[in-house]
Write a protein that binds this DNA or RNA. Structure first.
Lengths: 211, 211
DNA sequence: GCAATAATGTAACCAATGTTACAGCACAGT
DNA sequence: ACTGTGCTGTAACATTGGTTACATTATTGC
């Protein structure tokens, strides 16, 4: 585990902290599609991502969803920190976007390290900073942009995260992420295909050019 | 100034920290309507609110606005911290909602106190926590709710912040805050009036019952 | 009081998005 | 090969919200 830590967090944390993390952390492998956290779950640990990606979503009482952002290696979830602090239940849902490996750190350590290590403190602040900005960008997108533009952004982000020009999702799944309806998404995707920017297939979409 | 600090932050910070704040902080009075920060401004200090309220807004490139939340006494702006950390320009706009008094703390102190005082650290985390939640609630509102419900939420929040059952705004101003258009807001307000829940007047709205 | 200005009321219309319904097609399992 | 299920395509329609246009009313400055 210490090697994975060094590879992904070596530039952030000092030796001592890396060793502490290795000592109390537990290594976890999570398959793509696995729900790591649901609304209302209690938070038991803080995940430090080593490889893969995790999709973080908001959900309302009716079960309607909205994609917030993805977590990648070298990152952690500020919502988790959020919940630890407030001793509250999770207000978000997290699902592995890919096969993912991570190191789980008990939440009690968070407070301790925050006092002890400047690098940890910086990391935690940086995480909050990044997440707040990401949520703001989603807000911009939902508040100021139309669905066609939001769909484009979504597709771009998706190929960036998955490092592939093929998106393996159904129109229905995309509609859930954007909190829209399948028919609307099919309609807009068809327009993009007619513009020659994507190719539609069953269960996957090939991206030609989104610029 | 030390008295205002004790009244508003005495339960949060220890004596030593209160004294430090009093020593380096500058007391400011801001009239209602004053723009405290515009998009692109550089952040020069961290505001600790003593009285009044500040309206925090998001703005897109076209100048379209959206109300994010209000800051009240005993609070500070996590966006400011956000900007300090990233050394970036402000991504939000802040306008005094009421006559407001505050203590301005130089941003260099933020880092120093974070290492030195646990209470400060907790305050900073709590602030991030609160703001992230507030932005998430706005996102819920924009993503999941229709304009009539958003307008209701807006009116409720407005009377809570201003501690008055009369709202001194034009329909146009409300439309800006909700990123809608004047005609739409007038239409919805008229419906609320017909339901007997509000009374419309020129330049102000009397709230009867929003429950 | 009178003109200029700002705020509000309202109608008609348009665009974007969501909904319902159904057809066709692909694929998996038998 | 056959069938059931899930995915996609498409049309028709409903709803929400935004736009344009203009009338009416209140307020301000003279």
């Amino acid at each position: 585990m210490i090697q994975e830590l060094k590879d992904n967090y070596g530039h952030l944390f000092e030796e001592d902290l890396l060793n502490e993390i290795a000592h109390v952390g537990t290594f976890k492998e999570v398959p793509a599609g696995f729900t790591m956290m649901a609304i209302g779950d209690y938070v038991r640990g803080m995940p430090l991502l080593v490889s893969g990606a995790i999709k973080v979503m908001r959900e309302d009482k009716e079960g309607d969803e909205l994609l917030l952002y993805y977590l990648e290696s070298g990152e952690t979830c500020s919502m988790t920190m959020n919940c630890c602090m407030g001793q509250t239940k999770s207000e978000i849902k997290a699902v592995a976007e890919q096969d993912t490996t991570l190191i789980m750190v008990p939440i009690q350590k968070m407070e301790e390290w925050t006092a002890k290590y400047k690098t940890w403190r910086d990391f935690v602040f940086q995480t909050y900073h990044n997440r707040l900005n990401e949520v703001l960008h989603i807000l911009d997108s939902v508040a100021f942009e139309k669905m066609d533009q939001r769909l484009l952004n979504y597709l771009k982000e998706k190929i960036r995260i998955n490092k592939s020009n093929t998106i393996h999702n159904t129109h229905q799944e995309i509609a859930y992420d954007l909190h829209s309806s399948r028919v609307v998404i099919s309609r807009l995707l068809k327009k993009l295909e007619q513009m020659g920017r994507i190719e539609l297939h069953r269960n996957h979409i090939k991206i030609i050019n989104l610029a």
